Computed example of a mutant assay.
Amino acid sequence: MSDPRYLTLDKLTLSYGGSVAVQDLSLTVGRGELIALLGPSGCGKTTTMRAIAGLMPVASGSVTLDGRDLTHLAPNKRGIGLVFQSYALFPHLSVADNVAFGLKLRRVPAAERTERVKKALARVDLAHLADRLPKALSGGQQQRVALARSIVVEPGLLLLDEPLSNLDARLRLEMRSELARLQRELGITMIYVTHDQAEALALADRIVVMRAGKIEQQGTPEEIFERPHSAFVARFMGFENCFAVQAGQLVGAGATLPAPTGTSSTGLAWRPSGVVLGSGPYRGEVLGASYQGQTVEYLLNCPLGPIKAEAPAEAPRFAVGSEVSFDLPLSSAAPLTNVD
């Protein structure tokens, strides 16, 4: 990556009225990198994206892109493309005219405009629909128009705000592949805002997990998925059983159980698939069982509180109300440094 500090957010603070939404956030993005801002609703990810785009005033800190200070620059002067969750297409304009809109505002000559629109539509496989109105398109096709409209202006940075959330599961998968292909072909720097872990894992070079307006953890998809640092990130990435470790004991629900031998961290977390059912030093009551096709999900009650477990569908079933032995192997646990 030629420029590891292509985009720099330096101690960014953003407020709505008297309420701070993002506080003292610093982040660098490399040229050609695809970053996913991941987190639950209200964590500040969309607010951060809006500030980069110039749609949100900056209380303090700065935004720099390719050496240019954008902090107080108007949105149309930033050279940034933005794909909205709602697509925001003009219903009375054809596909081609929607894509050409930004070029017209920039007073690009008609001949060049036509050629660039053709190329952009070809990239998203919509050249054959150039004359259609948005209402005659499927959701996936409308999303492609929104992408073409953003890339046709050749932005220095492309921001995508939950762009696939309005699509069904099959279309989301197709568009995810389409986005990955476009990013590779164009080499464009992208920031992708999402609450969907699967999208972030599939698309991003680096994932930035946000919590309450701050960065909780950042790293490669593999690092975030396999080695969460905090209970917050662990739960968000599917480690639903999280416990503090104190004096060799797992702590939860006001009670303790012996921690696995060899534990040295301040906390441990297990995915449901990492819980062993039918044997082990712990015992719990089955509160619920849910058939999921290839697996059965169980909810157990034990002194530490509820435990979520998972077993293959072909394994012997445990009846609701029965007592079952279980184990929390250290080998399938994620060690945590922060259990708050």
Rank of each mutant, 00 (worst) to 15 (best):
S265W: 06
E240I: 04
P134G: 13
A148Q: 13
P303F: 03
E226C: 00
A309T: 10
L167N: 04
V29N: 14
L126G: 11
K214W: 04
L34S: 12
L12P: 05
R283K: 14
V193E: 06
V209S: 00
F326L: 01
Q85P: 12
G30C: 11
S273H: 12
S331R: 08
N166P: 05
D340N: 13
N241M: 11
L159H: 08
V339D: 02
D24W: 04
P109L: 09
F318H: 11
I207S: 14
G252E: 13
E162P: 04
I52Q: 13
A130S: 10
T194M: 02
S62T: 08
L257Y: 15
A127K: 06
S273I: 07
I52M: 13
P329A: 07
A309S: 05
F239G: 00
G32H: 02
G278H: 01
V152M: 13
A110C: 04
L268G: 02
K45Q: 08
A247W: 10
E115A: 12
E240G: 06
R107W: 14
H195N: 13
G219A: 13
N338W: 15
V29P: 14
A212S: 14
T295G: 00
A146D: 08
G284Q: 03
Q217C: 13
P281A: 10
Q85W: 14
T194D: 06
R172V: 02
G213L: 15
R176C: 15
L277P: 01
R68A: 14
P228G: 03
S177T: 09
